[in-house]
Amino acid sequence: MSPTLLVMLVMMAVPVVMVFTYSTLSNVIMEREPEFVGLANYATLLSDPIFRKALGQTAIFTVTSVVFHLLLGLAFALMLNSTLLPRLASSLFRVVYILPWVFTASIVVILWQLMLNPNGVINYMLETLNLISTKVEWFSNPDLALGTVIFINVWAGYPFFMVSLLAGLQGIPKDLYEAAEIDGAGWRDRFFNITIPQLFPIIIAMAMLDFIWNLQQFPIIFLATGGGPLNATETIATYTYNLAFSKREFAMASASGVVLFLISAIVALFYVRHQKARD
């Protein structure tokens, strides 16, 4: 096992170190002998208004996604866990509810592009129900694009929370609820005084991980809109991709990646502190 562990460590650490190094050099990969430029790449990056816009939109995208992942995941987990539900129904619903999870990002996007196309089935249904009068451009309207992309990301990502919380709910001792019921506690009390506190260690770990992952969410945004229209869905991840593979500024792209890393590191630090306080 230990040689494998060593390989794993190398594979984890070396690329990260290389990205840090790249971010302090002049254009790596394209130049034969890149020079050390210190923090110049970071200065250029931070002075770009589009980068700053992307930073703001990344925050909106990430926070909204995590909140809805958690809310939907928790709501669905509680419903699926209900004792009022026959076992067969519960089993079938569970399978339906994890569906968004089993598709690769490109299919998720293609599917929603088909359905949200101006001529797609969603507009058709909304038209039939007289909810809209003109064809809504879900992706092409700069005012709607970010919301649409977040919606798709929420759809694709909540099963992770749901499955984990469903598992967490099993770990809550039933006698806690029984005791509460004897004390005359309503469902609200039981939810806030037992369920939430019991799930808290799992929720906090998942929220942090989901935050870090969504900060970097790339395939869904890029395949759906490429960051457009008019940078309306530009996030650090799409911005970084364009730097690397469209503008071929690999050093700048590394710097942009490191910025994202630093944001994640701050979040991680809070988590670790919280864990420590718990010990």
């Binding site: 190398v10 594979m11 984890m12 650490a13 070396v14 690329p15 990260v16 290389m18 990205v19 790249y22 990969i29 942090m208 870090i212 992952w213 900060l215 970097q216 790339f218 650090i236 991840a237 970084t240 991709y241 690397a244 690999f250 792209a253 590394s254 942009s256 990646g257 490191v258 994202l260 890393f261 994640s264 590191a265 991680a268 630090l269 988590y271 670790v272 864990q275 420590k276």
Partner: peptide
Amino acid sequence: LKSLVNTVVISVQAVPPITLLIPYFGL
């Protein structure tokens, strides 16, 4: 070093895969 291990474990996945791609590929 428990906190350190925790931090490292989390940080590893905090670098966007797009930027890691080429160094990782080389490795």
